[in-house]
Amino acid sequence: MAVTGARTVEERGAGAARGTGGGWRGAVAAEWTKLWSVRSTWWGVASAVALMAVMAFTLATSTVSNNTNAVPGDDMGVVSVSGVAVGALDMVQFVVLALAILVVTGEYATGSIRATLQWVPPRGRMLGAKAVVVAAVAFPLGAALNAAGTVVADPVLGGWGRLRAAEFAADALQSGVYLALVSVLVLAVGAMLRSTAATLTTAFLFLLVVPMLLGGGDESGPARRVSDSLPSSAGRYFMSGEGPYSQAVGLVILVAWTAVAVCGGVVVLRRRDA
C-alpha cells in the first residue's frame, strides 16, 4: 500500500469518494486522486516525454540519412514533421500503457483492490471509473507527446520536414484518441489477468510483435488481413490515413476492440472474488 504523507493513497481515494457523494462521480474522483497520489504516475509521464524526444530525434535523423545517402531506394522525400512523432508513438505508447495497467494490477499486487471494491461494490462502475480516468489522462498526454516529438523532429529534418498547422492539429488529436482507446483496452486486459507483467507482455505481443509477424507476408493473404484487423494496425491507419481502409474504419475497429475488452473485464470481475 503506497503512503503519501500522513495519509495513504487508499484513504485519500476514500475521502474523495465521500466528498463527492459516491456514485459515478465519487468513483471517478477517487480513482483520479489515487492515480496522481503516487510517484510512478509522474515518473511515467516524464519518461514518456523523454522517450518521445529520443525516438523522434532518431526517426528524423534516419529520414535525413536515407534522403541524403547514395541509395535511392530508401529515399522518403519530404515528410510530415508531426507524422514522425506519430511513428515514434509505436514504442513510446508502452510507457503510457504501463501506467494504465498499474491502475488496476497495482491494486491487486498490494491487496488494495479489496478496499476499492468496498468503496465501489459494482464491478462495472469500478472498472468504468478507472477507464474514464485513464482516458482523461491518456488523451491530452497523447496530444502533448505528439507536440513534443514534433518540436524535436522539426529542426533535425530541416528542409526534409513539412510542418503545417492543419496536419499537426490532426496528428495531435488522433494521437490522443488512439492512446486513450488503447490505454483503456489494456486496462481492461489488466482487470482480467491481474498481473502487471502478464498484461504488459500481452500488450507488447498483441500491439507490436504479432502485427509485425503477420503483416510481413503477402499483402492480400489471410495473415495480412488478420494483421490489418488488430487494434494497433487499425490505430496506425487511423492516425496516418494510409492503409487498406479509411481512417474512420480504423477508428471503428479500434473502438470495437476496446469495447470488447472492457466488457470482458467487467464479466471477469463479476465472476470472481478480489
Score class of each variant (00 low, 15 high):
I113Q: 05
V84E: 07
L181A: 12
G44K: 05
G73I: 01
V267D: 03
Q174L: 12
G235Y: 05
V86N: 01
E31G: 00
T63A: 15
L59E: 09
F204H: 06
V189W: 10
N146K: 03
L117K: 04
G265N: 00
W119D: 13
V81C: 11
V78N: 02
G5M: 06
V84W: 13
P122Q: 04
R18M: 10
V134N: 08
T258Y: 02
A136K: 01
R164D: 15
V152P: 07
S227C: 08
P155H: 04
S82Y: 09
A165D: 05
Q247I: 00
L193Q: 06
T63E: 07
S233P: 10
M212F: 11
D218T: 02
V104E: 06
R164I: 09
V3T: 09
V209F: 02
A170V: 09
G87V: 06
T58W: 08
V71P: 02
G264W: 00
C263K: 12
R125G: 03
R236N: 10
W43T: 13
K34R: 15
T41S: 14
R25L: 15
V249C: 01
P231A: 10
G190F: 04
L207H: 04
G149R: 07
A6S: 15
M239C: 03
V38K: 15
G241S: 08
L99S: 14
V262C: 07
W32N: 11
